[in-house]
Design a protein around this nucleic acid. Structure first.
Lengths: 189, 189
DNA sequence: ACCTGAACACCGTTCAAGT
DNA sequence: ACCTGAACACCGTTCAAGT
């Protein structure tokens, strides 16, 4: 069993198609949501359906390519915050101001959920790096005793995802739930 | 604009079809998940697709009918727990032992999410009653100061839904997240 | 090597025709 | 009144045929 390896192709014309599909999909996801028909994306990009499917064997693969740069930005931002603030402030700021807003954009929640589920297999470098960045923030906060020891990084990511996706269009509710989450993360009394 | 009113029909043959569709759908959802084709359900029930669509104009309506009794059981259980325990124990027991396990069954999470979103319009009695039961548990716990005042019932339901659906197949993670939730619900310090 | 686009087996949904 | 089931416009996916 070989890995799907959805890498960028080498030949110039194939690479052009690949990039063009990703850009077209980005527009289509933004306009119509992440459930938009793949045939429609192919047609809009002016290429055959088979070309889309060879480059991106699953819808997931296409979504991943579209949001790869966003995942990378989240990863970079985590490192910046860790360098500039104390561990708890860095973690809280990252979740509240970067992760949750990102997950409220269509498509990216799916990607991050997938990152969380599959990263152990390390099939995608950007997802692996994302998980490591999140884990680093959490471990640092635990190391200084700012949050409880009996929590795992994926618990926080999952709860943040649940809050982000369930509070669509209600920022006040989102803030309330995040406050509950972070109060619940305090060291057990 | 008239309400869809997906009530049970009066004529005996139509009622028989209605009930048979619900039972067939219940089996199909359990076996194949809540995304199973409606045409497949109709065929399996031995009725025409049009009959299914007249009784249940949307997939949501069919799911609602299938899980109506489960919603009612959850509602009843809330009242029982409120009568038998102190408010915090009742709320915590209800969420941990009834609500979250229920949401982990396929289909019912969708129904409860819908209940939460639409209950203000009170278009379905069982959903309205469910929300009132949950609200009663939360208000009682707030009245005795057992949980924070600045939380709304729907925040708790949403977070519980997020935890239930994101922790599939990992009971230990589910327990950890529920502990974070309930610690976060303590009166603000 | 890579691409096209017709073709396949599906899907949700509708509606003329039946009883 | 209620039901049937063919028909419509789609969907994801594949693959022979081209370049």
């Amino acid at each position: 069993m070989r890995a799907p390896s959805p890498g960028r192709p080498a030949r110039a014309d194939a690479l052009r198609n690949y990039e063009h599909i990703v850009e077209t999909a980005r527009e289509a996801f933004a306009e119509r949501g992440p459930e938009v028909s793949l045939n429609a994306i192919a047609q809009r990009a002016g290429i055959g359906a088979g070309t889309l499917y060879r480059h991106f064997p699953t819808r997931e693969a296409l979504i991943e390519a579209v949001y790869r740069s966003d995942i990378a930005a989240l990863t970079d931002r985590a490192a910046e915050l860790a360098a500039a603030h104390d561990p708890l402030a860095a973690l809280e700021s990252w979740v509240r101001e970067q992760l949750v807003p990102a997950q409220q954009r269509p498509g990216i929640a799916t990607t991050l959920k997938d990152a969380l589920a599959r990263a152990p297999e390390a099939f995608s470098l950007s997802k692996e790096r994302f998980n490591q960045a999140a884990d680093s923030l959490v471990r640092s906060a635990q190391a200084v005793g700012a949050i409880r020891q009996d929590v795992e990084t994926r618990d926080i990511l999952r709860m943040a995802a649940g809050i982000a996706t369930s509070s669509e269009g209600d920022p006040a509710a989102c803030k309330r739930m995040l406050t509950i989450l972070f109060d619940g993360l305090r060291p057990a009394g």
